[in-house]
């Protein structure tokens, strides 16, 4: 009895230690964000002393046309890039999982490598590419750049879904008289749809939050929300920035929560692997 209870007690102590450490980590992760959100509701202009509750900074946001423009730009870029990247990424995933070809392993690791490529490198090379190609910088180049860096994420998520799928299900559809188009629309697509949706939501948040790559490929006058926040910072941290950051956090959070509803365990693991940089 005594021998049995000693390790049990030790277990409990180390369990508590773990909990404590975990708690501290959460604090470290979320306290700064919580503070930003907290001070966005400060009635005073200070970001250190809380004077009282107010939503006036949010009102300020809505009155500033440049912020609204940046918000619309971010939304437009996010939606456009997501739509294009989702289609291309899904097709890539299908192509990679269906075919055996020379250099497939290479193509496969290329997809993973793209997700861990330093953003600054991607940004610079895209800039060089656009300049060399003679493409004027602006919303279009931002969309193209965002498509380029989100495709691989979509591909990885959809591939995870495909790899869990029994190939004979599609053969069964063909066996029962469905031509390739019908097979895709009635069987393959419904089965991979959760993966496609999750990939799309992931692509949107990545695009919506992106700063580094966008910084390089946006021309003058086409600013997205992250770029706008950065430029506003030159005049110091203001409660308006806090309010704007809160909006960005909220949008991202809502979409990520949405994505995790679609994600099965397999896809979630793949996303984690892909985003662990």
């Amino acid at each position: 009895m005594a021998a049995g209870s000693a390790p049990k007690g030790m277990c409990r102590i180390s369990d508590r230690m773990l909990l404590l450490v975990a708690g501290l980590i959460y604090l470290f992760l979320y306290a700064p964000i919580a503070i930003v959100i907290f001070f966005s509701f400060n009635s005073a202009k200070s970001t250190q002393n809380f004077a009282g509750f107010s939503t006036k900074w949010y009102g300020e946001l809505l009155r500033d046309q440049t912020i609204l423009d940046a918000f619309y730009n971010s939304l437009f870029v996010g939606v456009a890039a997501t739509a294009i990247a989702t289609v291309i990424g899904t097709l890539t995933a299908l192509a990679l999982s269906r075919n055996e070809f020379r250099g497939k392993t290479f193509a496969d690791s290329g997809i993973y490598a793209a997700t861990v490529m330093p953003e600054i490198v991607v940004g610079v090379s895209l800039l060089v590419f656009f300049v060399a190609a003679g493409v004027g910088l602006g919303i279009t180049t931002i969309v193209i750049a965002h498509v380029a860096f989100t495709i691989s994420f979509v591909t990885i998520v959809v591939r995870a879904r495909l790899s869990g799928m029994d190939r004979s299900i599609e053969e069964a559809a063909q066996d029962l008289g469905a031509n390739p188009v019908q097979t895709f629309l009635r069987v393959t697509l419904p089965l991979i749809l959760p993966g496609v949706m999750a990939g799309a939501l992931l692509a949107f948040t990545l695009s919506f939050d992106d700063f580094v790559i966008t910084f390089f490929v946006s021309g003058v006058g086409s600013s997205t929300l992250p770029l706008k926040i950065y430029s506003m910072l030159k005049f110091g941290v203001t409660p308006v920035i806090n309010a704007l950051s809160t909006v960005v956090v909220l949008v991202t959070l809502v979409i990520i929560l949405g994505a995790s509803r679609f994600l099965g365990r397999d896809e979630a693991r793949e996303v984690r692997r892909a985003t662990e940089e």
Binding site: S168, I169, E171, A172, A173, D175, L176, G177, V187
Partner: peptide, 15 residues
């Protein structure tokens, strides 16, 4: 999809 045969798969392959 054009052959007059149908298959029962070992894994069943139910949709």
């Amino acid at each position: 999809y054009k052959r007059p045969v149908n298959t029962v798969f070992q894994s069943y392959a139910i949709f």
